[in-house]
């Protein structure tokens, strides 16, 4: 395997030395491009008090290509599908090499706070969200209760 680019090493070091509140990212021992991530549900959102597991992978072309991120914890959200895939512009067409692991995870946290049902990945959830927002939010809260870790 090719050696790890300096950028990835430095980003990892800085994530440890200057962590983001409510977010953790730990590289895997065998593969330093693979991170185990947790994100706290933002206060005031249906995901509040839940801690969600994610996985993040830095492809060979990183930082010219976006990291691959996926929710491992089941979540009811119009931009996240059953497989945990996330519909977020900066992970696709609006990726910029000036973004980092840190900024990506912060953006995902922000997506939990403000879902965008008009650019959906999970069509059924988005439809629910548009037609009956309160009901959808209640369901999201239920799922958080059911599947996410509890915040102590």
């Amino acid at each position: 395997m090719a050696s790890l680019p300096k950028r990835i090493i430095k980003e990892t070091e800085r994530l440890v030395s200057d962590p983001v509140p409510g977010i953790t990212a730990t590289p895997h021992e065998d593969n330093l491009r693979y991170f185990q991530v947790t994100i706290e549900g933002p206060a005031g959102s249906p995901y509040e008090n839940g801690i969600f597991d994610l996985e993040l992978y830095l492809p060979d072309e990183y930082p010219m290509e976006a990291p691959k991120v996926r929710f491992l914890t089941k979540i009811y959200h119009p931009n996240i599908d059953r497989l945990g895939r996330i519909c977020l512009d900066i992970l696709k067409t609006n990726w910029s090499p000036a973004l980092q692991i840190r900024t990506v995870l912060l953006s995902i946290q922000a997506l939990l706070a403000s879902p965008n049902p008009n650019d959906p990945l999970a069509n059924d959830v988005a439809e629910d969200w548009i037609k009956n927002e309160q009901g959808a939010k209640n369901k999201a809260r239920e799922w958080t209760e059911l599947y996410a870790h509890k915040k102590n």
């Binding site: 008009n118 650019d119 439809e127 548009i130």
Partner: peptide, 11 residues
């Protein structure tokens, strides 16, 4: 080259 990304109505 790609097709423009549009916001779609999920319905």
């Amino acid at each position: 080259p790609h097709f423009p990304h549009e916001e779609v109505d999920p319905t």
